[in-house]
Every structure is written in C-alpha cells, then in structure tokens.
C-alpha cells in the first residue's frame, strides 16, 4: 500500500483482462455447467433441504460477483462464513 492508500500494483486493467480473460471465461463456464448439471439432476430427484440451502448460497454468491463492489472476494468470504458473536465467551462460560 502506498502512503496515498493506493495498492502497489502498476499493472493496468487492460493488461489484467488480457492476461486473465480466457482463465476467467473457463471458470465461469465451469460454474454454469455445474449449475446446469445440478438442475438436470434435480428434475429427477428433489434437492434435500441442506442441498437447497447450499444451492441458494451459490446463487447469492453469483449476485455478489455480478455487483460493482470493489470487495467482492471479501464479501464472498463473509457469505460463506458462520456468524461471529462478540458474547461467545459468556455463552461458553469462559
């Protein structure tokens, strides 16, 4: 981080897209194909409650990826995290 609070990379957005476009395209295709596979299988057998919850989480994750946030990775991590409660020590009796 620079003293001005900017990140230290000097690479441009153009360069990063050029480097990563095919890789990201492939990852998105994997996500799409996996969701298709789930849907095809779900036509035959209903998803269980826990699988449904996980499927919904994936949908929420996709919404985060679609957003214009500059902290998408951090937001995804929080989506997939258990909640922290500051009074946990009282709950545990510690």
């Amino acid at each position: 981080m620079t003293p001005e609070g900017k990140t230290i990379t000097e690479r441009t957005g153009d360069l990063i897209i050029e480097e990563s476009f095919l890789e990201v395209r492939a990852k998105l295709l994997e996500v799409a194909a996996t969701l298709d596979r789930i849907d095809r299988a779900s036509n035959e057998t209903q998803l269980s409650e826990s699988a449904n919850e996980q499927r919904a989480l994936l949908q929420q994750a996709i919404e985060i990826v679609r957003s214009s946030s500059s902290e998408r990775a951090t937001e995804l991590q929080h989506l997939f995290s258990r909640e922290y409660k500051s009074d946990w020590r009282q709950t545990f009796g510690l």
Binding site: Q77, H78, S81, R82, E83, Y84, S86, W88
Partner: peptide
Amino acid sequence: HLEDKYQGTRMILD
C-alpha cells in the same frame, strides 16, 4: 478452515 474461519479467527483474537 472454510465457514469456521471468520468466527474462529475473531474468537482467537479476542
């Protein structure tokens, strides 16, 4: 790891 990391890290720091 995974879904336990955020909660656990905060607890450890506490």
